[in-house]
Design a protein around this nucleic acid. Structure first.
Length: 229
DNA sequence: TATGCGATATTCT
DNA sequence: GAATATCGCATAG
């Protein structure tokens, strides 16, 4: 992978013309989300997270790189859901889904991708919200390297791409997004558009439940055009 | 634009 | 041995 962090000199002297439009717009300093305000219900949390911001800071001290994006697509895997990883009970792999609201659950699929969930119910109940797509905001150059040169609208369009763009893997499993110093959630950077609902993608059980949520019309939502509108 | 298929590793049957 | 909360590439329309 050619995904090396660029030397400080390049970041200090960035040419405005080379910076993508989304990165050149200032991102306001926003309030970190607290556990108390998260809806303690998987489906409600999945809808509520649309428009909120996910932030990952990485790299050694002094060379921290901040990667962030607007959450534009989620799926709810509710308690008792046969398509959820928690369905057969707690195991070493899925333990984070059973932790308190706001924990990260990261798993590895298809031999090459990671996916990020947010534990979505009270301690002891296995449920989560899968974060499926981001509209990149900060650190777009670094995300592009992590994604092997993908175009802006494909950087985090899909759960596997999202984790790759943010540099997330099993090391991030079980982190508490409410308190972790590197990975956290903050408020929406702008008004959220209409939130639409559909069936979920890529599952073979309970396929008809309307538990996928997305910002209607966003180019950063996964799937075909029909799944975005 | 839509559909099909292979890659790849961990988990579960 | 089968399935998998996916992706990127190939091909056809």
């Amino acid at each position: 992978m050619p995904g090396r962090v660029q030397p400080r000199a390049q970041r200090a002297a960035k040419a405005p013309t080379a910076v993508p439009a989304a990165e050149s717009s200032p991102v306001p300093i926003l309030r970190r989300l607290t556990r108390a305000e998260l809806p303690a219900n998987t489906s409600e949390l999945a809808r509520w997270l649309i428009g909120k911001t996910l932030v990952h800071e990485r790299g050694p001290a002094g060379r921290r790189v901040r990667l962030s994006g607007r959450i534009v697509e989620t799926e709810a895997y509710v308690p008792g859901d046969a398509s959820g990883h928690a369905f057969r009970g707690e195991t070493a792999r899925n333990g984070s889904l059973f932790r308190e609201l706001g924990r990260a659950y990261v798993y590895f699929v298809y031999g090459c991708w990671h996916c990020l969930n947010v534990a979505a119910e009270r301690e002891g109940v296995g449920a989560g919200v899968l974060l499926r797509a981001l509209e990149p905001l900060e650190g777009i150059a670094a995300m592009t390297r992590l994604r092997g040169g993908a175009s802006l609208h494909d950087l985090a369009r899909g759960p596997g791409r999202l984790a790759a763009a943010l540099g997330l893997d099993l090391r991030h499993d079980a982190l508490d997004l409410m308190t972790d110093p590197n990975l956290w959630l903050v408020d929406a950077v702008r008004t959220t558009g209409e939130v639409a609902t559909s069936v979920r993608i890529g599952i073979s059980k309970e396929v008809d439940r309307p538990l996928r949520f997305y910002e209607r019309g966003s180019r950063f939502v996964s799937g075909s055009a029909r799944m975005r509108g």
